[in-house]
């Protein structure tokens, strides 16, 4: 295989990767919206779901870069839950909800560890 071929293959691979990621996100946003709509007794147009996917995509872009920089600022190369909590620093209610998830996650891991050491 020649070099330009490789580059071309990589380009198409990258493009399909992007498309596959976006359609996967689209599918899950659709499911989420359906669940929320069922609770509220409303319906959403496909256009609504598509726009919301686009919005989520941009939000992912923002938070991925934020998280990366938060971790880097703390001299870490792995993003931890503390970095995610920092995302919600401007919204106390959101921070509280995320803190609950983090606490639950930590408790689950502690329980697992305790079980392991018991054996």
């Amino acid at each position: 295989m020649s070099a330009p071929d490789d580059a071309e293959q990589e380009l198409t691979l990258h493009l399909t990767d992007y498309q596959r990621l976006k359609s996967a996100l689209w599918y899950h946003v659709g499911k989420l919206v359906d669940a929320a709509c069922l609770d509220l007794n409303v319906n959403a147009t496909p256009q609504f779901i598509g726009s919301l996917t686009e919005l989520a995509w941009v939000q992912f872009d923002n938070i991925a870069k934020d998280l990366e920089n938060f971790a880097k600022h703390a001299n870490r190369s792995t993003i931890s839950t503390a970095d995610v909590l920092l995302l919600a620093r401007k919204n106390p209610d959101l921070h509280g909800l995320l803190q609950k998830v983090v606490d639950g996650e930590a408790a689950a891991r502690a329980a697992k560890q305790a079980e392991k050491s018991k054996r």
């Binding site: 998280l67 990366e68 971790a71 880097k72 190369s77 792995t78 993003i79 931890s80 839950t81 970095d83 995610v84 909590l85 995320l98 998830v101 983090v102 996650e105 930590a106 891991r109």
Partner: peptide, 10 residues
């Protein structure tokens, strides 16, 4: 850059 499992869930 890596991401921990708990962070992904959050």
């Amino acid at each position: 850059t890596k991401i921990s499992g708990a962070a992904t869930k959050t």
